[in-house]
Design a protein around this nucleic acid. Sequence first.
DNA 1: AAGTAAAACTAACGATGTTAGTTTTATTAT
DNA 2: ATAATAAAACTAACATCGTTAGTTTTACTT
Lengths: 193, 193
Amino acid sequence: MARQGLTRAYIIQTAIDMIESEGLHSFSLRELAGRLHIKAASLYNHIQSSDELYTEIGYYAISELKKVQLSAIAGKVRSEAVEALADAYYRFGKQRPEIYKVILSLPMVKNDAIHKAGFDIVEPIMTVLGGYRLTEEQKMHLQRVFRSIMHGFISQEEAGCFRQYPVGVGDSCRMAVRGFILLIENSEKEAEI
Amino acid sequence: MARQGLTRAYIIQTAIDMIESEGLHSFSLRELAGRLHIKAASLYNHIQSSDELYTEIGYYAISELKKVQLSAIAGKVRSEAVEALADAYYRFGKQRPEIYKVILSLPMVKNDAIHKAGFDIVEPIMTVLGGYRLTEEQKMHLQRVFRSIMHGFISQEEAGCFRQYPVGVGDSCRMAVRGFILLIENSEKEAEI
DNA sequence: AAGTAAAACTAACGATGTTAGTTTTATTAT
DNA sequence: ATAATAAAACTAACATCGTTAGTTTTACTT
């Protein structure tokens, strides 16, 4: 039964839907095939391997994350932009944790297209940092600091590492962002000398 | 062949050695059993499940991480202690990445003993923060900020997310710690008012 | 109407964690 | 020293996983 209308894009989207609704850990090629009313082996007519599928899903996640970040900083600059960016990042990780996890599983070692994805991750924060008077080297460092803070909060909260104390994690995160802004402003002063 | 001298502790230690030397992803109960010269099914005379084994390994990793942190801050206070703590944390994650990964896979949802492990993770940074004039709530937030920064750097560098720019990741991390210290000092001023 | 290529199928392989039931060993009690 | 017991090994099997090989069916092209 060579069914028509079963495209690669549709398969990937179905996989994304399943991962978002039922979790990454319970996802398998056989479940995906079942949802598409085909056998698992038939998937290999559309994809080369499960790695390839996860890579595609990772690309999707990165582009979604980039999208919410760019729309969050639209029309904003400096500290206001930083706060909006952080808020968008945090909300994405909290609202779509399963898809977010896929990003990290991306084999960044690989070549070609992954390079592009790497810049998609970096672009929003680099744009915001462009609003400050900083050297290129400072921007490279600060971009990493921002991503570390945000990823640290998201992944640890998701893992349940932040349950110990009765204070809101969102508040903790905003405090971290305040510290990050302090660091940017401090770096700006150093750059002026 | 009911071999003598095959204790639960020895099995766990063997698993740790294997994970550290050959990586978490290539570890399996059958490989572990092979190294111990028994069959995989026989492992179940000593452990209840692979989850239990990973939990034990996670406890080990947490205690090791706590150890290096506590020895790093011995005799130090305030910013010097923060920097030493961060340095020890970063080095641990970099030198023992496979074991570090197990910590996060710990099912923090669970009850009882995991609670203790949670406090082992928090204790060193809370000790250092004790050297500042901060409210309890500030300490709770700042402890999370510290852990997020450190975990963010370690896990993203390990995942290869920091390959884009030709500046040292260690330098980026030290910059983040400087920002964290700025945030602490800033919080201290607010607490005094 | 015949040919071709895409896309489905069945069947199987090796690996994973795990369980049930059996046999061996080491220690304890008689 | 011998018999009983409990611990710890065994074999065999199950379901699930990703994946491959080879076959059959479908839909489009000539």
